[in-house]
Design a protein around this nucleic acid. Structure first.
Lengths: 336, 336
DNA sequence: GTGAAAGCGCTAACAT
DNA sequence: ATGTTAGCGCTTTCAC
């Protein structure tokens, strides 16, 4: 295996100079640098990242902690991190804590994360109290993308406003009896996104002088399947049923839409359905939603991390992301 | 920072013993091991992965090379790798070559991959000739999950058979005029999955004595959006239009379904639609398909990699994955 | 602008 | 079962 010494010898310089030249550091004359780069290429030299990590203390790796990778928001976000890292010589290390039910190790301050990465990007997820504590104890640039985590900087949309916006859209159309399909699970006190969206919904309803019938609160877990099931339960509700459903995510809204069609319920004539997220399939089926861009959010978060690593203190800071109401064909005034 | 020497000193043993104890190697008495583990915990010792990598030459990291992370197959597969690695002390490093159009570096034999990982799991993708060559030159356990790459072991379904199966299902129902929506792009000679699926389709058609009208060959890129667009083009076809469409992926089939409904075309009465993959949303909308499980495939591939790293020579080998025709409500005999 | 040399914190022989 | 020690291949002062 050709090492830095071989290159140094072949180029007639010291290893120190080779190191500087390869990394593009100053204090190397153009001629020397050119010569070194040429011989390095000729010899097929590839620096040992292990040695470099040990000597420099930098891993040139960003860790991404995500609860899932095969769900819309997370897949998009990871793609964003990747795109931002790609070409900058940084690696992306993916960490997964497993779902919220499975037993999971406390790994924040542990080996898995510690010393393996230079910075951490956390995708919104279910967190236990102690995990949040661990997070605060981590001594490296850290940003969360998605829902806010108390005390940590995050890049994401205003979920409260998103829920209000979409609910008010329905109210403006004339709906007075609105059902809610949310992903709130009372055990998940620390996953704030579902809760915040629910709050936005309730506030919009109440401040419009309407009432919310608790019996029309449906539960899901943010998947299409849970939307399908929720719709089945909705159909068992006693008449008069709500004329609209606010879903806490597009994926659940899609499930609702699909199941509604299956039962011959015409959307939006008989039932208005809205979601939040801006899932691509929503566009294909005409789902009214509040759009957001997880990829862009993750890119922004990654940029902050990189800037902070580059010595730009304070580069990591909270930042609200773009969101936009997109009215399509799943909403209309109620018939009654 | 507390290092191995601190632990050794505090426990009254040598660093070598600490190393063995921590890694669970034999030749350490239970008492000693217990004592070492205790003091290590007490001191908050965390091994430096950089030092360990340098000294051992092992990175304990598996690289995953994927063209996308935010698409169904890839998200599921990455999740599978992660799940298999999780708990085994292995890290997952995600590499992305960028789409097929963007300029991309040749990174297989380069720094990004070399010396950063112990093994590579490749997710089926568009590969240039020279990239395949690079792949063959890589000196580490390597497996591909998904479509086959010439000369490399892969875990995946029989795409040819999947396409035949789904096409023959239509033929058995009585369809004689079948359109095809594929993802084949003639420039992508080396991404075999689209091509193989197309072959399966053609063979099924021809061997049933039917003819395929080239004008009913629609192109897409495996996304829902491209399915939507393809359906628009389908509707512009002169009558008599095909009575069924075979889509090379469920995502495209979903797009077709959505757009068909938008135009008031009743599925399956007026048009039968089939896909391949087993996408969750397919179940929700009643899409007939050939199901496969990318997560399981990736887990299997990862297991092979890990076994090979564990000294189990020949652990990596080609293996066909499970696939199954699932008939739902998007297919029926043609009306005419 | 360049070189010499001392680590970085482990692991792996080998010795005991 | 445990200790000794020589690296692993870079980076980084500090001299020159």
């Amino acid at each position: 295996m050709v090492g830095i010494e071989d290159v140094a010898a072949a180029a007639g310089v010291s290893t120190a100079t080779v190191s500087r030249a390869i990394r593009g550091l100053p204090r190397v004359s153009p001629r020397t640098r050119a010569k070194i780069l040429a011989t390095a290429k000729e010899l097929g030299y590839v620096p040992s990242s292990a040695a470099s990590r040990l000597a420099s203390g930098k891993t040139h790796t960003i860790g991404v902690l995500a609860p899932y990778v095969d769900r819309w928001f997370f897949g998009k976000a990871i793609a964003g991190v990747d795109r931002e890292l790609h070409g900058r010589g940084y690696n992306l290390s993916l960490f997964n804590l497993g779902g919220r039910t499975q037993p999971r190790e406390r790994l924040f301050s542990k080996a898995m994360v510690q010393k393996q990465i230079d910075a951490l990007l956390l995708l919104c997820m279910y967190l236990h109290e102690e995990e949040i504590d661990d997070l605060h104890a981590i001594d490296m640039p850290l940003v969360v993308v998605g829902g806010p985590v108390p005390g940590l900087s995050n890049v994401g949309i205003d979920d409260y406003q998103a829920a209000r916006t979409i609910t008010e859209h329905l109210i403006e159309l004339g709906h007075r009896h609105i059902a809610l399909l949310h992903g709130q699970d009372d055990s998940d006190l620390n996953f704030s996104v579902p809760r915040i969206r629910v709050e936005g919904f309730h506030d919009a309803v109440h401040q419009s002088g309407l009432e919310f019938d608790p019996d029309t609160a449906l539960f899901g877990n943010f998947t299409v399947e849970s939307g399908v099931e929720a719709m089945r339960r909705f159909l068992e509700l006693p008449a008069p049923r709500p004329t609209a459903i606010v879903c806490a995510s597009d994926e659940m809204a899609l499930g609702v839409l699909f199941e509604a069609r299956r039962h011959g319920i015409r959307i939006p004539e008989e039932l208005s359905v809205v979601g939040i997220d801006g899932h691509e399939m929503g566009a294909a089926v005409g789902l009214t939603t509040v759009w957001q861009d997880p990829t862009a959010q993750a890119r922004r978060g990654t940029q902050m991390l990189l800037a902070e690593l580059g010595g730009d203190e304070g580069a990591v800071h909270p930042e609200k992301a773009e969101q936009r109401l997109i009215v399509r064909e799943s909403t209309a005034p109620p018939r009654r």
